[in-house]
């Protein structure tokens, strides 16, 4: 039986924190149009930029991870807005563009 469940992001984030790593969570909080991942999708990031999960299917993870690493350093939560262009949307398998808003917070 293939395991179609995504790896549990929060469990991994807690484990990383337990190892003493700096950890941030990025969560899709709002979407407009055909956003690639649903509201509630999460990404866990450590202070070195390693991450698991997804918030967009690949188009904006790089930028989100960068913001997350900064949030780990300064402790300030961030609300990020991204527009997914038609080209990017096409790359992730969507026919039209969308917008997503992502909340980034440090795990204390």
């Amino acid at each position: 039986m293939p395991d179609l469940e995504p790896e549990d992001i929060l469990t991994r984030a807690a484990a990383w924190k337990g190892e003493g790593r700096g950890v941030a969570l990025a969560t899709v909080v709002t979407t407009w149009g055909s956003a690639p991942r649903p509201v509630g999708s999460q990404l866990a990031v450590d202070q070195e930029g390693r991450f698991i999960g997804s918030v967009s299917g690949g188009c904006i993870e790089g930028a989100v991870v960068q913001e997350a690493v900064e949030a780990i350093a300064d402790g300030k939560p961030r609300l990020l807005d991204f527009g997914v262009s038609n080209t990017e949307a096409w790359d992730v398998g969507l026919a039209c563009g969308g917008k997503i808003q992502i909340y980034v917070e440090r795990l204390e």
Binding site: L10, T11, A13, A14, K17, L25, T27, V29, P77, L79, Y103, E105, R106, L107, E108
Partner: peptide, 29 residues
């Protein structure tokens, strides 16, 4: 996110209790 909230959330999920994590996006509460 406070560790206490994450731990409680994980405990609720393990106990299969439906739960909502509310976040005030302006203040982070």
């Amino acid at each position: 996110m406070q560790r206490t909230i994450l731990d409680q959330l994980q405990a609720d999920r393990a106990a299969k209790i439906p739960v909502v994590l509310a976040t005030a996006l302006k203040t982070g509460e």
